[in-house]
């Protein structure tokens, strides 16, 4: 699209709105945008401020600024909520699951995009159909499958369940990136004597590195925030993950808003880092499905 069209669309330029009625409407629209933006930014401010003040201070003006800062809540989140342990438990599940997903979906997407074999299209169609299967609808049979192999309350069980749940989406996403790798390159590599795995490793993967990054970021984010499967498959305290730990802590101790806020703030660190540094990758990953 030419720059001209874009410039022609810039109707917000001052001066172009001569009529007051139109300007009034524009201001009203802008205020709606601003209010909405405030409602999304405010939670961060609120949780941070609640985490850093005493509960007496909070009761005085719940929505406002703290009078004096205290790290008491943060300390108590570590001692009473055991937030460090919860964070470690989450990482011990999410990181292996993300790595497993990356390896499995690389191999599968590579086979589905760059090789011809019987039932290739059928396999693709099955993967796409599984993507539409809502996780909440199959939580009971997955619980049973994990129970049947004695992996209930074992991190490996949740890791495998996470990998299975995210696999259709991961294959789909990586396949859309791998499709951009020209087949001639692979042919050339194989003519030079490189085997299929070698070709994947030294030709395809370097070319889809942005796709890999997008995939790992999205999977990390989804699984870090996941609640239902973690609640169902890791029911004992020693393995409990961060979101479940915080969700249950807040149900039991209503009075400790500060501690819960401190815990929430810490649980938000990885998602916020991803948000600030990988926003473009996230956006690309989330819109890939829509625009195909």
């Amino acid at each position: 699209m030419s720059t001209q069209t874009v410039a022609g669309r810039a109707r917000w330029a001052p001066g172009s709105a001569a009529r007051i009625g139109r300007r009034g409407r524009r201001v009203a629209v802008w205020l709606i945008f601003a209010t909405l933006a405030a409602s999304t930014i405010y939670p961060l401010f609120f949780l941070l401020s609640t985490a850093l003040r005493t509960s007496e201070d909070y009761r005085r003006a719940p929505g406002g600024l703290p009078h004096e800062l205290t790290f008491d809540n943060v300390q108590r989140a570590f001692s009473e909520m055991d937030i460090g342990r919860l964070a470690l438990n989450s990482l011990l599940v999410v990181v292996p699951a993300v790595l497993l997903l990356t390896v499995l979906s690389c191999l599968a997407a590579y086979a589905l995009v760059h090789f011809e074999f019987p039932l290739r299209r059928t396999t693709l169609a099955i993967v796409a159909a599984l993507m539409a299967l809502p996780p909440a609808a199959i939580v009971i049979p997955i619980f049973k499958a994990i129970l049947d192999v004695n992996l209930l309350n074992n991190r490996l069980g949740l890791i495998l369940a996470y990998a299975a749940l995210q696999l259709p989406f991961s294959i789909f996403l990586l396949a859309s990136f791998m499709r951009a790798v020209p087949g001639e390159l692979l042919k050339a590599a194989m003519l030079d004597g490189a085997g299929p795995l070698r070709t994947l490793w030294s030709v395809v993967l370097p070319l889809v590195r942005p796709g890999l990054l997008t995939l790992m970021t999205l999977n990390f984010l989804f699984l870090w925030n996941e609640f239902l499967y973690s609640l169902v498959l890791l029911q004992r305290e020693p393995e409990r993950t961060m979101m479940v730990g915080i969700g249950q802590f807040q149900g039991h101790f209503d009075q400790s808003l500060g501690i819960v806020s401190a815990g929430l703030m810490m649980s938000m660190i990885p998602p916020l880092l991803i948000f600030f540094f990988f926003q473009r990758d996230l956006a690309r990953g989330l819109t890939t499905g829509a625009l195909k």
């Binding site: 933006a37 609640f227 929430l264 948000f275 926003q279």
Partner: peptide, 19 residues
């Protein structure tokens, strides 16, 4: 700003709105 809540866990959202 509009994209920010998307990265937050439903637990964060639920507990935050509770408060």
């Amino acid at each position: 700003a509009f994209f920010l809540p998307v990265v937050l866990s439903p637990v964060v959202i639920g507990v935050y709105y509770g408060m």
